[in-house]
Amino acid sequence: TTYYDVLGVKPNATQEELKKAYRKLALKYHPDKNPNEGEKFKQISQAYEVLSDAKKRELYDKGGE
């Protein structure tokens, strides 16, 4: 599973699309609303952290993490 899959976006997604997808999923899986989905929330946050940063995203796209 790639970070793009976690957020449900395509690899060519814009920053705005990433932000929108992250917010939607973060609300859905937030531990306050969904106590059993803490791990999913962490995955979503990690994916967004990497993909929202241009340098980290470039490194990730080249095969790094």
Rank of each mutant, 00 (worst) to 15 (best):
G8Y: 04
K20V: 14
T1S: 12
Y3G: 01
A13M: 02
K33A: 12
E16A: 11
L7C: 01
A26V: 14
D53G: 03
Q43M: 11
Y29D: 02
N34W: 07
K10I: 04
K19G: 09
A21S: 05
E49D: 11
E39Y: 08
H30D: 11
Q46T: 10
D32M: 11
G8K: 05
A47Q: 01
V50L: 06
K40G: 04
Y3H: 06
G38I: 15
K28C: 08
L18N: 00
G64R: 15
G64W: 15
Y48G: 01
R23M: 15
K10E: 09
Y48W: 11
A21H: 04
Y3D: 01
E17F: 03
Y48L: 03
G38Q: 13
G64E: 14
L51Q: 00
G63Q: 14
A21L: 02
Y60A: 03
Y60W: 03
K56N: 07
A26G: 04
Y60H: 04
N36F: 10
R23S: 12
G8D: 05
K62C: 09
K19E: 15
T14P: 04
G8A: 05
Y3M: 05
K42D: 07
T14Q: 03
P11M: 11
E65R: 07
N34C: 08
S52Y: 06
L7S: 00
A47F: 02
A26T: 10
G38H: 14
R23E: 15
V6G: 01
G38S: 15
A54K: 12
D53M: 03
L51Y: 00
V50C: 08
D61R: 02
V6R: 05
H30A: 09
N36A: 13
T1G: 12
S45K: 15
L25A: 05
G63V: 11
K19R: 13
K56Q: 11
L51C: 01
K20M: 15
E65D: 12
Y29C: 04
G38E: 12
Y60N: 03
Y29G: 01
V9F: 00
D53F: 03
D32G: 08
S52I: 10
R23V: 13
A26S: 11
A21K: 04
A47L: 02
E58Q: 09
K19F: 14
Q43S: 08
D53E: 04
G38A: 15
N36Q: 13
H30E: 05
L7K: 00
S45R: 15
A21T: 04
N12T: 15
Q15I: 10
V50Q: 04
P11I: 08
D61Y: 02
E17T: 05
Q15E: 10
A13C: 14
A54I: 13
A13P: 02
L59Q: 13
Q15S: 11
K56A: 11
N36T: 13
T1V: 12
E16W: 10
L51W: 00
S52T: 06
G8F: 05
Y29A: 02
K56G: 06
P11W: 11
T2G: 06
T2I: 05
G38Y: 15
S52E: 03
G64P: 11
Y4G: 01
K33D: 07
N36D: 13
D53K: 04
L59E: 15
G64H: 14
Q46G: 05
P11Y: 08
K33L: 14
N12L: 06
F41I: 04
L18M: 06
D5E: 11
I44Q: 01
Y4S: 01
T14V: 03
R57V: 02
K24T: 11
K62V: 07
T14L: 04
Y4N: 01
Y3E: 01
P11H: 10
K28H: 08
N36K: 10
K20Q: 14
K42S: 08
K28S: 08
Y3F: 09
R23G: 08
A54Q: 10
K62A: 12
E58S: 07
G8T: 03
A47C: 02
K42W: 09
A47K: 01
Q43C: 11
L27H: 10
Y48C: 03
